[in-house]
Computed example of a mutant assay.
Amino acid sequence: MSKSTATQARPVSPHLQIYRFTPTMAMSILHRITGAALYFGILLFALWLLAAASSREWFDFINGLFGSIIGRIVIFGYSWVLIHHMLGGIRHLIWDTIHGLEKQTSRNIAIANLVGSILLTLVLWICAWAIRGGL
C-alpha cells in the first residue's frame, strides 16, 4: 500500500444543521414516513379481510372498531397517507423524466404534493360520505 501524500484532512460532509429546511426536504422526509405508515395500514386492512373471512361476530366486532370515532380517524389518516405517498411517487416519476428539477419548480411541486394530498383526501371523504348518506 502506498502512503497518502495529502497535507490536509479530507472534508467532512456537512451535518443537518448546515442545511436550510426546505419544502422539498420536508416532502422527502414525509414520503419516507408515509411509506412506513402504509405497512401499518395494510395490517389493518388484512385484519379486516381476515375478519370478513371468519365469523360474523368477529367481522361485526372489527367493523365496530373501524366505525368508532378513533377508527374513523385512523382510516382517515390512512387514506391521507395513501394519497400523499401516491402523489410523492408521481413527483418522483416526474423527476425521473428530468423535468421539474429546477429549484423553484421542485419547491412548487413539493408544496402541491402536500396541498393536493389534503384536498384529495377531503374530496374522497366527502364523496364517500355523500354516497353513504352521512354518518
Rank of each mutant, 00 (worst) to 15 (best):
S2T: 13
K3T: 10
A6T: 09
T7Q: 14
Q8F: 05
Q8E: 11
R10H: 13
R10N: 14
R10E: 12
P11K: 12
V12G: 08
S13Q: 12
S13E: 09
P14F: 08
H15W: 15
L16F: 07
L16A: 09
Q17S: 15
Q17G: 13
I18F: 15
Y19M: 08
Y19E: 10
R20K: 14
F21N: 11
F21W: 13
P23R: 00
T24D: 07
T24M: 05
M25D: 13
A26C: 06
M27A: 08
M27G: 02
I29W: 05
H31V: 01
H31P: 01
H31S: 07
H31L: 02
L43T: 05
F45P: 03
F45Q: 09
L47C: 02
L47T: 01
L49G: 04
L50C: 06
A51M: 02
A51H: 01
A52V: 14
A52Y: 07
A53T: 14
A53C: 10
S55H: 06
E57Q: 10
D60P: 08
F61P: 07
I62M: 11
N63T: 08
L65W: 09
F66Q: 07
F66E: 07
F66D: 05
I70P: 06
I70T: 12
G71W: 00
R72L: 09
I73H: 15
V74K: 02
I75M: 05
F76K: 10
F76Y: 11
G77C: 05
G77I: 01
Y78T: 01
Y78M: 12
W80R: 02
V81I: 07
H85D: 06
M86W: 14
L87K: 00
L87Y: 01
L87W: 01
G88C: 03
G88K: 00
G89F: 08
R91C: 02
R91W: 02
H92E: 15
H92I: 13
I94E: 08
I94Y: 01
W95C: 03
W95Q: 10
I98E: 14
I98P: 06
H99G: 08
E102H: 15
E102P: 07
Q104N: 15
Q104T: 08
S106I: 11
R107G: 05
N108S: 10
N108P: 02
A112E: 04
N113R: 00
L114C: 04
V115N: 02
G116S: 09
L120C: 05
L120M: 11
V123Q: 08
I126W: 12
C127Q: 14
A128Q: 09
A128Y: 11
I131T: 06
R132H: 12
R132Y: 11
G133N: 02
G134S: 11
G134Y: 09
